[in-house]
Amino acid sequence: MVLRIRLSRFGKRHDPFYNIVVSQARTARDSKPLEVLGTYDPIPQPPPPGSVSRRAFKEIKLDAARARYWIGVGAQPSDSAWRLLSMVGILEPRFRVAQIKQQVVAADNPLAAVDAARKTAEAAARKAKKSAAKATVPPPEQKA
């Protein structure tokens, strides 16, 4: 059976709180996991009065080394777990809104997807060409 790194919901009504857990994929969400890797509090906390940044924050506790180990032995993170793990650099970032939308469009309409892929490839080629031209043209100070 597949091992998953996922969130299990604790807390209260209107007051969610998640454990980041490693568990068998087919077990219930809140059942006892193999291991608790950490926690995720999705409610943003107000910035402390004396803080420099003055920005709200969400608290996440995570044993990064252990998370790396579990991914190394084949555990599959869920989407939300992937998002969190990618923030600390354990995984490649995958979830951007535009990207996801594109993927959804691609799944709905394969022809449009091919078109979009061609367009992006062309744009990339153009960009590469431009940068190459820039590199070959010497700066104006040297010309004079």
């Binding site: 291991e35 943003p44 924050f57 969400k58």
Partner: peptide
């Protein structure tokens, strides 16, 4: 809109 603050812990 907010920062994500990760604290390294030990299982």
């Amino acid at each position: 809109r907010w920062d994500f603050v990760f604290q390294d812990i030990s299982v």
